[in-house]
Nucleic acid binder design. Structure first.
Lengths: 206, 206
DNA sequence: AATGAACTTGCAGTCTCTGCAAGTTCATTG
DNA sequence: CAATGAACTTGCAGAGACTGCAAGTTCATT
């Protein structure tokens, strides 16, 4: 009866309110940190702006950083599925390149949100590492996936970890350039450029 | 008159004591964290083990993490110099590969220390990002260096950032394998293997 | 309407980290 | 050698992040 916008949503007015509160907290955190910088925003500020008690803040997020970093890991599962579908029919590097485009699309669709986050990261570089950590788990899973595909033990053979780590780095470089350019360039094009250079063995340009 | 072990050392008994205190703090921090895990060690524990007040701890380190991470950035300058010497006569990727061997040598010479740190990182993965951050500044400088060598603007051309980010990732993979193998393999050989794969364009192994 | 689960909140407390104002140690200079 | 001042250590008070507990409140279920 109730219209389901997303695949599964039991959504009582309770769960609805939870989503609202969570969104209000991340929104307030992002906005305040973009304005003042991460270290000049307290949990009290964020919860006040979101209209909840500071104690409630910690019912939603384990740390102040988590509220800013949010959940950008949702599309990881979609990427995994895409990668699994592509791996049998092409080289590993090419499969990764195409699978990454899912993330690219999600980011380009969410431009404003990502630029706000860039503003926060720009003001408060201490947050960058945490971003890397949240990627670490995803990288570990992808490494395992590729190792299985190739039929090798990732502890013995270095290739799966190497290709995942380097392509992740390439993606980060592309994303950084995208944000630095204020979105005037296409993220997809920048990613393609990076992967092309990787395929060519990182030979000197010119 | 006084024998100088290192190049420059004014070393009164005051500076000597400072070095001792600093070493005692990092040593205690490393040991305790390897035993109990980072989050189960307080600053009070560390300073007590090192025989100084907790307040003094913060005169030496800005944060608890800093005491564990220590200063592994010393050889960065040596690597920069080596890179500058090599760049004119060979491709960028090859120059980086050879320059990295300086760091490799330092790490292999300091095996025990690095393995203790590996133990800490293994028990407390939250520390890994901080390690990445400390590398970030070094990466930024190297990127600039390569951009100058190639005569390009790193904000316009993606290659310098890309080659630095990917080789850093490759090095991290090699170091991780080295530590995972408990040092039974040569770090230099693992690094070479990774760079060879990079040069080959990350083609599938077989 | 009644029951219980889920959510929010305040409170007390721990831990990290900082500024300040002592006190102490050491190198320097007359 | 004594005096001066800089460097270092320390305690104290306090802000801020974060947690466990014991309420109170809201909501779904029956």
């Amino acid at each position: 009866m109730t219209p389901d916008v997303h695949s599964e949503a039991p959504l009582g007015r309770r769960d609805l309110r939870k989503q609202q509160t969570r969104a209000a907290l991340t929104g307030a955190a992002l906005r305040l940190c973009a304005e003042r910088g991460f270290e000049h925003v307290t949990v009290d500020d964020i919860s006040a702006a979101a209209g909840v008690s500071p104690r409630t803040f910690f019912n939603y997020f384990a740390s102040k950083e988590d509220a800013v970093l949010g959940d950008h890991l949702i599309e990881v599962e979609a990427m995994r599925a895409r990668l699994a579908a592509l791996l049998p029919s092409m080289p590993v590097l090419e499969a990764i390149r195409r699978a990454v485009l899912i993330v690219v699309a999600a980011m380009e669709a969410d431009r404003d949100h990502w630029f706000l986050r860039m503003e926060v990261f720009h003001r408060s570089p201490q947050l960058l590492p945490r971003l890397v950590l949240s990627n670490a788990e995803a990288e570990r899973l992808t490494t395992e996936q590729i190792a299985v595909h190739l039929g090798v033990d990732p502890r013995v053979h270095g290739y799966p970890a190497l290709v995942v780590a380097t392509t992740s780095a390439a993606f980060r470089v592309a994303a950084t350039r995208w944000m630095a350019a204020g979105g005037t360039l296409s993220l997809g094009a920048l990613v393609d450029e990076a992967f092309t250079a990787l395929t060519a063995g990182l030979t000197d340009p010119g």
